[in-house]
């Protein structure tokens, strides 16, 4: 591991400012072929988040540190990383949660590294293309009631940070990208399937290439979602029930009438 770079290598905090508390940030530096964590000392002020520290390093220590970000407000979903082994948004993870510890910042483990903290998440966009888009019964505009769109609106809060995809053990530990779409796309499918005006049917996709059966409802996606979407409870389990209606319920099959819509 490289020697810690200290503050004297960088610009000191503004003149007259009180001395800030230093913390050690251990940031992954490298690309898809090789890399290692390097330690840096960072002055930490109240309310500072991990992304602030990375920005401070870029400005004061090493401008070549790569990280993806846009909003610094937990809205754009760009700054996902593994922070002390746990997936989180760099702009929402406060440094004072780690007082007395080294803060290890690594790129998301599930996706291929491009450089430093930046990963290639394009697999997700390929998955998105495999899902039949919204197919309304009649062209917009149409009237819908709030209670009919409540469920879908929870899922539309998604900021596509892909932290759920990153933490999902099917993708992260078992490289299941060829078998399972991942939790982000389960909420996408749930949103469309529960839409009162949608006419398409994605249940066969779920049971087949979507790989819903690979999810073992261990709820890590729900635990890390910065939008607090109940991914497992409100999307995945209801979808498992819908798949069971079709594939595991002979009684229902017997009585299946036209979709009640």
């Amino acid at each position: 591991m490289a020697q810690p770079q200290t503050m004297d290598q960088a610009a000191a905090p503004e003149a007259g400012a009180q001395q800030a508390t230093d913390m050690t940030l251990s940031v992954f530096r490298g690309d898809a072929t090789a890399g290692e964590e390097r330690e840096y000392r960072v002055p930490v002020g109240p309310g500072m988040v991990v992304l602030d520290a990375v920005h401070w390093l870029q400005a004061n220590v090493d401008s070549t540190i790569a990280c993806r970000w846009n909003c610094k407000a937990a809205r754009c979903g760009s700054c996902s990383a593994d922070i002390n082994g746990h997936p989180g948004l760099m702009c929402k993870t406060r440094l004072d949660d780690f007082v007395g510890q080294v803060v290890h910042v690594r790129p998301m483990r599930t996706f291929p590294i491009i450089k430093d903290l930046v990963t290639d998440v394009s697999w997700n966009y390929k998955v998105a293309k495999q899902i039949q888009p919204f197919t309304p019964a009649q062209p917009a505009p149409f009237v819908m009631y709030q209670r009919d769109v409540d469920r879908g609106q929870e899922f539309r809060r998604c900021i596509e940070c892909f932290l759920c995809q990153n933490v999902c053990h099917v993708l992260r530990e078992h490289s299941g990208m060829d078998r399972y779409f991942g939790p982000r796309f389960m909420i996408k499918i749930a949103e469309l399937e529960m839409h009162p005006m949608d006419t398409a049917d994605r249940v066969d996709l779920l049971a087949g290439g979507g790989g819903l059966g690979f999810c073992n409802i261990t709820k890590c996606c729900q635990e890390v979602c910065p939008e607090h979407i109940h991914i497992t409870d409100n999307a995945i389990i209801p979808l498992k029930e819908r798949t069971a209606d079709r594939y595991w319920d002979p009684i229902r099959r017997l009585f299946r009438r036209r979709r009640t819509g």
Partner: peptide, 9 residues
């Protein structure tokens, strides 16, 4: 990010 001006955290 602006470096801290008060003792932190």
């Amino acid at each position: 990010a602006t470096p801290a001006t008060v003792p932190a955290p």
